[in-house]
Design a binder for these strands. Structure first.
Lengths: 195, 195
DNA sequence: TGTGTAGGCCAACAAGTGTTGACGTATTCC
DNA sequence: GGAATACGTCAACACTTGTTGGCCTACACA
């Protein structure tokens, strides 16, 4: 976590913090709607009502902006605390909520698809956040990665069709319908004894 | 299908056809690996051992190259000819095969995620190719779009995690395993009476 | 043989990119 | 007070992008 901050007293928030967060907010939005390549430093700076050079000064380079702007915490619930048959529904519901209230997920998905660094970061999210959760639910420990991957397939497919490509019928589904259809699938991928 | 061909006798293939297809092949590969923005005309031209200006002359502009290079035919099998309980497995098997032998699908997915025109083209593929197939299998006609969308979610999720983001456990799954896990899901989305 | 034309290359344009450094201004600390 | 430093702007850099027009070569047809 080395950012470009010069060593200043951290006792009180600095004046530039407002600018910083303005940049990050603008960056998140741009990355989400435009993807990595088309989200330009100039556009981000303009959205934040700031000079492009400030963006560079604060975050070093474009990759730095992206790294600082897009940090994902899925805040996955503790599935171990749930009755086993309810984990599918809990996961789908949670994902749906996260995706609808949050630009960052779309941003990361868009960038992950076009950019190698973005793809690696998504792999990190999968490894550090989804895998551990699956660990608490899967029957056979050896099958954990495969089962987590299956869950990822279903949930990312949902995100791609509904929030990125916006297939009309995928958008038209209510959240309740999505949960009703997908929860049993996720449940099966996680806990069913066999394919 | 209006391409930039000047009106020449079509009795025999023109000398330039080789160049044409070389450009299209190179373009497909570049769009697949780099996405729309980073696939430059110059790179495509270099791969085709041709001058960049030729690409423009043949296809007008970059969008023209993309339109000419990426035309998707999923070649979906006629599900109506199959026993009803076998459509899930047939679809998943077919998709898997298509995706592994074909650059174009990855290209379109990559572009669809970052580019508006690409997204619309994917919607077209969904509408013109997947929806009609679902029409022959779904019980309730009114549910056809939703069910086709659910199938798209599952299949595109597979493609994203396995071929684009390359999550290691998703790549590690054998084709047989993928079919074994996903076929029942697709089957359910298409033919189950209710969520 | 000459001439028209299709196929191809070269050089350049205008616009936009990430990035940098010099230069002001306000705030903070002594 | 003055001086150091954080904050910010401006202008420009080096480079890449899509795109264009002029020029050269080889082939077809008269």
């Amino acid at each position: 976590m080395t950012n470009g901050k010069p060593p200043t007293p951290l006792t009180q928030s600095r004046r530039s913090d407002a600018t910083r967060t303005a940049i990050l907010t603008a960056a998140r939005e741009r990355f989400a709607t435009d993807g990595y390549e088309r989200a330009t430093i100039r556009a981000i700076a303009k959205d934040a009502s700031i000079d492009p050079s400030m963006v560079m000064r604060y975050f070093g380079n474009k990759e730095g902006v992206f790294a600082a702007a897009v940090s994902i915490d899925l805040k996955l619930p503790d599935l171990a605390a749930l009755p086993r048959h309810a984990v599918g529904e809990a996961l789908v519901t949670h994902f749906l909520a996260m995706w609808e209230e949050n630009d960052v997920l779309t941003a990361l998905l868009r960038v992950g698809v076009t950019n190698q660094a973005g793809a690696e970061r998504m792999q990190g999210v999968f490894r550090d956040q989804l895998l551990p959760v699956a660990r608490h639910v899967c029957p056979d420990p050896e099958q954990i990665p495969a089962r987590a991957a299956l869950v990822a397939m279903q949930l990312l497919g949902l995100a791609v069709t509904r929030y990125v490509l916006r297939f009309p019928p995928a958008v038209a589904l209510s959240r309740r319908e999505v949960v009703a259809w997908l929860a049993p699938t996720v449940q099966r991928y996680l806990t069913a004894p066999n394919p």
